[in-house]
Design a protein around this nucleic acid. Structure first.
Length: 271
DNA sequence: CTTTACGCCTGACGGC
DNA sequence: TGCCGTCAGGCGTAAA
């Protein structure tokens, strides 16, 4: 479910409610996530006060002073802020309960998400250590992409979805950014010119920024920390629009599976 | 090294 | 209504 904009939306939603809050209790009612939540998870956190909530790629990093915990939302995960503790429902895996009576609740039906406790520097944790640059940073630019793409034969769409190339670009925004920059998703990554990579970089930054501004994309079930959906789905130009008219040329948007993922593009506008 | 295919899961939806 | 196949915002892993 969540790509970078949805994770950032979640981060912004929970941050003001949890920073400065002291954790009095952590309840893990279902440890079955992508990796089992260890028994040591709760005692590591309890008693600490939340210092900050940061994001790296699609991971949320919660600093509790004594260490950090990482949260990944997988395909179907969400975090909610509860003003008061209410009865848990299906797939409510974890509650982090605060001294003031509020709580942060993690729900994940498909269980592709994860929670990790990290001693030491989280940037060196194995999940984060090999990640590429943040898409909204200066380090992500045309030179970086063009140089990395040399000799790569695989489709450019797969290339930009690899987290070692650039983080946070998932299946929706990859299709959108390629449409905006006029690049066919199936074109070999090594056969995209530097100039066109410059346009792709701009398109990725623009698409992600705009999506963050409106709270991300809700296709079926993404909600922010208050339970509200994101509105970027209304602005999607190609994703999920196969058969509809291209907003630029009017020809039908096509859908094709590339790298085992559905991809949407305009056969006329994208080369 | 890069690239590909496969699981891991539940739930929603469309067709019959 | 009910059943069944298909598909879904991710990504680690094994294998080619």
């Amino acid at each position: 479910m969540p790509e970078l904009p949805e994770v950032e939306t979640t981060r912004r939603g929970i941050e003001p409610h949890v920073v400065g809050q002291r954790v009095t209790k952590v309840v893990v009612r279902d440890r079955r996530l992508r990796w089992p939540v260890p028994e040591s998870f709760e005692p590591s956190i309890v008693g600490n006060t939340i210092v900050s909530v940061d994001r790296r790629a699609k991971y949320l990093i919660v600093d509790v002073g004594e260490g950090h915990f990482l949260i990944h939302l997988g395909m179907s995960g969400s975090l909610r802020i509860l003003p008061t503790l209410i009865e848990p429902e299906a797939h409510d895996h974890v509650d982090v309960i605060f001294e003031n009576g509020t709580a942060m609740r993690y729900n994940d039906p498909r269980r592709f998400g994860s929670m990790h406790w990290v001693d030491g520097n989280p940037a060196e944790h194995w999940l984060l250590a090999e990640l590429g640059p943040e898409p909204l940073s200066e380090a992500f630019n045309a030179s970086w992409l063009h140089d990395l793409a040399r000799r790569r034969k695989g489709p450019v769409k797969n290339f930009i979805m690899q987290q070692s190339v650039v983080v946070g670009v998932g299946n929706i925004y990859a299709s959108e950014a390629l449409f905006i920059s006029g690049i066919h998703p199936n074109r070999p990554a090594g056969r995209v010119s530097r100039e066109r990579y410059a346009r792709l970089v701009d398109a990725i930054k623009l698409t992600l920024s705009q999506a963050i501004e409106v709270g991300g994309t809700t296709l079926r079930d993404f909600v922010d920390a208050n339970g509200a959906p994101g509105y970027f789905s209304q602005k999607l130009k190609v994703y999920g629009r196969d058969g509809e008219a291209c907003v630029e040329c009017g020809r039908a948007i096509r859908k094709r599976v590339i790298g085992q993922r559905s991809s949407f593009f305009c056969p006329t506008c994208q080369r």
